[in-house]
Design a protein around this nucleic acid. Sequence first.
DNA 1: TCTTACTCAGGCTGCGCTGA
DNA 2: TCAGCGCAGCCTGAGTAAGA
Length: 316
Amino acid sequence: LFQRVRGYRAGDLERRYERLGIEEDAFVNYGFVPREMLALLHPRTPRRPWDAATMRRAHEVLAFVQARGVVHPREVGEAFAHHGRISGYWGGELNASTRLLEHMHHHGWLRVRRRESGTRVYEAMTHVEQDDGPPARQARAQALVDAIVSLYAPIPSPSLGYLVTLLRYGAMHLSVETRAVVKAARERYGHAMVDGTTWFWPAAENPASRRYQPDEGVRLLAPFDPVVWDRRRFAMLWNWAYRFEAYVPAPKRTMGHYALPVLWGEQMVGWANVRRERGGLVPQLGFAAGQPKGIAFKRALDEELARFETFLMQES
DNA sequence: TCTTACTCAGGCTGCGCTGA
DNA sequence: TCAGCGCAGCCTGAGTAAGA
């Protein structure tokens, strides 16, 4: 059934996000969580409750944000310099107040209003009180898992399990209910067993439908595109391992600093590193099983690179 | 008891952008 | 010019839970 991957055309993901209720400005501002999804994710229960000192600092920062309306972390850092500095997850040191802002955002005290040069600019957030009865909790859990299945279908059973365990970060308060949804996945979603692995997709969709026929174009995908995000599924479908190596030391890289997966029709044929040099586009391509022969691939690749160049010109 | 499939923490890492 | 900041990750190995 899934020797063929779901057809992927330019615009498919946008339409999928539209179905999930993500607004256009959410793309622009890198904020991918629609309001309806936020209601499912909050109020979050901290895995480890904050100690008294952290709670006091959080309330002080919240009062500061509420008074200002919208704040840049720099302003918070200046106002709360006495919070000091801490070791960052990525190495080096961070302002403790910046880390606190991140935690407050995660727990729903703040939302990202916009970004300035990539840096999050926050404002205070309030949540509508929700029905916390068992049926309502079950419905929210089902909606969360439905969203996962809709975005990543066809999804192998282990990947669904893994994604739902990741929900312990996003919706720990619904961990029991989301686990129950996964256990009953065969009743809720379309499914098939292929080579010993169960695959799921939304019940309302028919993967055999002609609607999912891929076009013959080439697409350079982002390293975290839902089509490639699940590396396990990637290897199962295309029999090679794609890696994102931006954080790998240069001598150890096999694909390049920012390799973009190259999709041609229904086949993931290789990867591309693209950079601009002297106003032109300089692509460096790699192929999992050799460059596809024939004029069709070359023409489709040229068209995609031209689209990419146009996109980059608009960005600059 | 064994196997499988996560689960989690910690160390390491490159590069573009910003502001002084 | 350069240091600091922030970021859409990767990998490993030990621990744990569930099921056969």
